[in-house]
């Protein structure tokens, strides 16, 4: 899904990451091949060559609650542009992800700053995502091996659960990821990040399935860090268009400054 969900790192967990033929692994070969096959289908469902979305973000932490509205464009896997629409104080602030680099435009000081490696692990826009999450998600398919770890009925629903194990040389801090999707429609329900001790580190739940970008998709994405269960970041898709015409100039430093 080189789609709208992409630029929010984690959320895209579902599609793109799992795609690609590289996804081989675990039990028997036949099983692994089937996982790859299904994940490709999941990915195809969500794939878009480009996207445009309007998203509302709510962040709740121990210290603040923050509501933002933003507009986001993406093209391919590597290019993403996010621009804040509200609140007024931050209106016009924009983030451009191009390859491994992240640039931020700050309208108040009229400066564009390229994030250094030291800032990569800092919070993105005060949310529970790091800048690194934005970069890493597009590498997901290279970084993980996937297999189906559960298939059948759970809580009255037919589900598929994938387990993603980071490859030995992948620059990933997690121990593993699990992704649960509805069998048949492949609509994602939940993604869980585990640390190296296989303790839950963060949980992403998908909900409010409704027509978006011409298909049924979950419009709400809810992230909870395991060490702070009272905090969350929630993304709500207000609109989504896929496979639209976007010029490369859209993802340049000069367009970053345009309001």
């Amino acid at each position: 899904m080189r789609s709208a969900l992409h630029r929010f790192g984690v959320l895209c967990a579902l599609g793109s990451c799992l795609c690609g033929g590289a996804a081989v692994a675990q039990p028997e070969d036949g099983q692994a091949e089937r996982a790859t096959q299904i994940l490709r289908e999941v990915d195809d469902l969500w794939r878009g060559s480009s996207s445009h979305a309007r998203v509302a973000m709510q962040v709740k932490t121990e210290h603040y609650t923050r509501n933002m509205k933003m507009e986001a464009w993406s093209k391919g896997k590597e290019e993403t542009l996010v621009r804040i629409v509200a609140p007024l104080k931050e209106k016009g602030t924009a983030t451009l992800k191009s390859g491994n680099n992240i640039f931020t435009y700050l309208p108040r000081t009229d400066r564009t700053i390229r994030l250094t490696s030291g800032m990569m692990l800092g919070s993105w826009m005060g949310s529970h995502f790091t800048n690194d999450d934005l970069v890493k998600e597009s590498r997901r398919e290279e970084d993980y091996d996937a297999y189906i770890s559960f298939e059948g009925e759970r809580d009255g629903r037919q589900l598929l659960e994938f387990t993603l194990l980071p490859k030995a040389d992948a620059a990933v801090v997690w121990g593993k990821l699990t992704l649960t999707v509805l069998a048949g429609s492949y609509i994602p329900l939940e993604e869980i990040y585990y640390d190296e001790d296989m303790q839950v580190a963060r949980t992403i739940t998908f909900s409010d399935v409704k027509p978006l970008g011409g298909r049924e998709r979950p419009a709400v994405l809810h992230v909870v860090p395991a060490d702070k269960p009272d905090e969350y970041t929630e993304l709500v898709y207000e609109s989504l268009q896929l496979d639209i015409q976007l010029s490369d100039a859209m993802f340049s430093l000069s367009s970053l400054r345009r309001r």
Partner: peptide, 13 residues
């Protein structure tokens, strides 16, 4: 230019 995250989560610059 200084960029940081303010105590209310907003971008501080």
């Amino acid at each position: 230019v200084i960029v940081s995250q303010a105590s209310d989560g907003s971008i501080a610059d």
